[in-house]
């Protein structure tokens, strides 16, 4: 990831109120060039609303958001030149083929002549749509449509990409293709804000994530950082040679061990504390004379972290 001094995407105390509902409530975070930033939260948490504000499709009630230093409220035209937005729906025009669709958006972004032809060619090559140039878009599969939508998003070579649920409804192969494309775009230095419900995939590509619920930002950071922040207990496994009974007594005597369960030489228990504490426990086990042949702590996945942070209120 290329960490530049100024963020490509910046949300500053963003609020959006619809009638009585506070859809986005004091949300602030930053995304830098080359970074893939995951934006996760349950349905109705405020992800799409904040993304629409960033895409200049909606206006904040208070606060502001910036793309490459330009306010989305006061300079939407400058923001639009730098931004590619892929909404969670696919807008189709009837009686238009893949080439014509991309050609229209290239023209709409002011590309002309050879520059437009080159941009369309590059996008079609990147999204593997070369062979489908003259296929009507109504006849495309979901995966092909998503690729075309991504192509439309990047036709004017924006420095910032905002992708709202790009992997929704895709088959595994299409998901892998999409993930690879996103990784390549990040390598090319683009700042990517991506929301998804498929957290396992997001965890693989996102450098950092933000968790939002009921309009409020609950956590921001890398998955590891957030895990460390929320993880007060982990499930640990210890296997020793011979001294199972002594291990039971030794572990049972400790304050940071709970739910101890020993089967044969294997002890499974809940350990209170972070990674440092786990390392200390292993050292103390060895110092106590146990022949440790297996030691492991099960770390929380992004899904576990998400469930923990949102306290299981996933809709």
């Amino acid at each position: 990831m290329i960490r530049t001094t100024s963020p490509q995407i910046e949300l500053s105390h963003l609020h959006r109120v619809f009638d009585q509902a506070h859809a986005v409530n004091d949300v602030s975070f930053e995304v830098y060039a080359g970074e893939v930033f995951g934006y996760i939260g349950p349905n109705g948490a405020g992800k799409t609303t904040s993304m629409r504000i960033l895409a200049t499709l909606d206006e904040p009630t208070a606060g502001d958001a910036y793309i490459d230093g330009f306010s989305v409220v006061d300079d939407p035209d400058r923001v639009r030149r730098r931004l590619g937005f892929m909404p969670d729906y696919f807008g189709t025009y009837q009686n238009v083929n893949v080439y014509e669709y991309l050609d229209f958006f290239a023209r709409a972004y002011g590309l002309a002549g050879q520059e437009r032809l080159r941009a369309i060619g590059e996008v079609m090559e990147f999204t593997l749509l070369d062979s489908l140039a003259h296929k009507p878009i109504d006849g495309l599969s979901k995966g092909m449509k998503q690729r075309l939508c991504l192509g439309r998003t990047m036709i004017h070579n924006p420095s910032v990409l905002i992708l709202d649920e790009p992997a929704a409804g895709l088959d595994p192969r299409a998901r892998i293709e999409l993930r690879e494309m996103i990784e390549r775009l990040a390598e090319a230095g683009k700042a990517i804000l991506i929301s998804s419900h498929i957290l396992t995939e997001l965890a693989e590509i996102a450098d950092r994530v933000a968790i939002i619920e009921q309009g409020r930002l609950l956590a921001v950071g890398s998955v590891a950082e957030i895990s460390a922040g929320v993880q007060s207990r982990s499930t640990a496994r210890v296997r020793v040679l011979r001294d199972a009974d002594r291990l039971r007594q030794w572990l049972a005597a400790r304050d940071d061990i709970f739910d101890l369960n020993i089967t044969g030489e294997l002890a499974v228990f809940t350990h209170a504390g972070g990674r440092e504490s786990e390392a200390r426990l292993l050292r103390e086990l060895i110092e106590a004379g146990f022949s440790v042949i297996e030691f492991g702590a099960q770390h929380k996945s992004l899904e576990d972290v998400f469930l923990h942070v949102t306290e299981g209120r996933v809709q």
Binding site: A55, T56, L57, D77, R80, R81, L83, F85, P87, Y89, F90, G91, T92, Y93, Q94, F105, A108, Y109, G110, R152, H156
Partner: peptide
């Protein structure tokens, strides 16, 4: 209705 208006309005047109 076809959800293309948003796509159109975020172009530089």
């Amino acid at each position: 209705e076809d959800n293309t208006y948003d796509l159109l309005s975020i172009t530089t047109l």
